[in-house]
Amino acid sequence: MQDYVGVQPVFQRNYNRMLLPAVIAVGIFAVLPLAGMVALSLTDFHLINGWDKEFGLKNFIRLWNDRRFMSSLNVMMLLSVFGVIFQVLLGLLIAVGLEKIVPKWRFMRGIFVVPFVVPAVAVALIWLSLFTPTLSPINAFFDLFGITVPAILTTQYGAVAAIVIADTWASYPFVMLLILAALQGISGDLDEAASIDGATKMQIFFRITLPLLKPALLMVALFRFIETLKHFPLIFIMTNGGPGRTTQATNYYAYIQTFQSSNVSYGAAIAVFLFLFAAVISFYVARANMRISDA
């Protein structure tokens, strides 16, 4: 009988059978819908017109000629790249601050985590009201001094920035918590030894702490990147994809094709593309992470 590493002897004999419920659950709730989506993307199903007999890669070929799809990829990358950069930087800054610089403020952790538990719809509504000049207390405050704060939701990059800001606010606690956990795993002896050798706090951070945090940073960045590919509530509520179409990220475009244009199969093809894109990114990041961890 095969011995499974890390599995208690009492569970060794029925290990495979015990995995079965989980495998079935994953099959039903993850693999089956995914397979259905892939199959749908190869057909030509329209909500109103019904099924077409064609079966093939037509929807995927259409993707490369669709200017709106290409434009949605740009929007998605803008939202994802800037979102991840700001979330990781802010999360790292606060985590290091609480753990290394002012440890007596650790009790503040709970407060910093609050945005993470706010539902996405509420996050969107909060920031929508803050960015709508006639509703915003920020605008009302500056109006007292005769200063007009511009409406950023009505400009192309302003609207993108608004979504990045809202997403950063809601998601930096996730980064902060993971970095805090990673920081607590780094032995204090290293800092002490470096300090005895005359290293400054900045040198300790950049030469010791940061390199040791690399695997955690890479993984948290990957998690956040994949999450940002799925942007929906913030766009739906804050900008409705506008102004024009400048905040229609790929995920949102898939929704438009499916529900507003009734092109279900084309929407599925976009979703399959997103899945493959996320899978490829994950693969390379995981490989890079293994290399860093092994080094």
Binding site: F131, P133, T134, L135, T148, A151, T154, A159, P243
Partner: peptide, 20 residues
């Protein structure tokens, strides 16, 4: 009003009701 480019019926009505 400032921000009109993103106004829907809710913001339009509220702007009138609040004197903006």
């Amino acid at each position: 009003p400032e921000g009109i480019g993103n106004f829907n019926f809710g913001e339009v009505t509220a702007a009138m009701q609040s004197g903006q």
